[in-house]
């Protein structure tokens, strides 16, 4: 039972993975909402800027972005702690994907809802905050759930900029013990378990958001 001895180290790595994932999800969600709302509500300049951000971070590979921030940026005098770099890049990356979700959900709110808000003389901000967003967020939740799991999986790449997350620990143990099958199996199971927890949490959030019979999908008309 050699593999039992890996557990403490892997568990520590899993904590780092969890922290980086959750931080990236939190920051990424903020970015997603800012960029997504900017695309729908912003003026020409603002929405173009948001579009550029989205295309840039969706269109280039995460690993390229990570190395760019880690190796290339310091050369022009900008550098962060590795963990901060990892969280920031991951957040920028998933935030770009998230902004598409936000934009799509906002665009799917029916025109009639805008008209009703207008007839009641809601301002633009009130319409967004009290009418459109609450409806759109519920439509976003399933896609955000998938994105959260994607974030967890992608967080493994931060091991390549020397952050001691679960994957990094697995690599270290393998280099010591050469027990590849044992270490990587445990690691995969660890990620799988974390994914399942994340999925469960997202389901609970979704159920809470749709609480009661308040909001069935086709309630627009």
């Amino acid at each position: 039972m050699q593999w039992v001895s890996y557990l403490p180290s892997l568990a520590q790595g899993a904590l780092v993975t969890a922290w980086i994932t959750l931080a990236a999800i939190a920051v990424g969600a903020v970015l997603a909402f800012v960029a997504g709302i900017a695309r729908v509500e912003g003026g020409r300049a603002v929405s173009t800027l948001a579009l550029c951000y989205t295309e840039l971070f969706r269109g280039t590979s995460l690993l390229v972005q990570l190395f760019w921030f880690y190796y290339a940026l310091p050369l022009i005098g900008i550098s962060f702690e590795p963990v901060a770099t990892g969280i920031l890049v991951l957040a920028l990356h998933v935030g770009a994907y998230g902004s598409e979700i936000v934009r799509g959900a906002l665009a799917s709110v029916s025109v009639q809802q805008f008209e009703a808000a207008r007839a009641l003389n809601f301002g633009r901000m009130h319409t967004l905050i009290h009418v459109t967003l609450p409806q759109a967020i519920i439509e976003m939740l399933p896609a955000f759930g998938n994105l959260a799991i994607e974030t967890l999986k992608l967080s493994s790449l931060v091991s390549l900029i020397s952050i001691a997350d679960l994957t990094f620990r697995a690599q270290s143990i393998r280099n010591l013990t050469l027990d590849s099958a044992g270490v990587y199996s445990l690691t995969l199971v660890g990620y799988f378990a974390m994914s399942l927890v994340l999925m469960l949490v997202m389901r609970l959030i979704e159920r809470w958001a749709r609480r009661g019979a308040a909001f069935p999908r086709a309630a627009h008309s």
């Binding site: 799991i149 967890l152 999986k153 992608l154 967080s155 493994s156 790449l157 091991s159 390549l160 994957t167 697995a170 690599q171 393998r174 590849s180 099958a181 990587y184 199996s185 690691t187 995969l188 990620y191 799988f192 994914s195 399942l196 999925m199």
Partner: peptide, 21 residues
């Protein structure tokens, strides 16, 4: 489900190191 919910990087390491064993 397992393939979908675990990182590509770790799957890659698994194949790279375990298959030769």
């Amino acid at each position: 489900e397992f393939l979908r919910d675990t990182p590509l990087l770790v799957q890659l390491f698994f194949l790279y190191y375990v298959l030769p064993e």
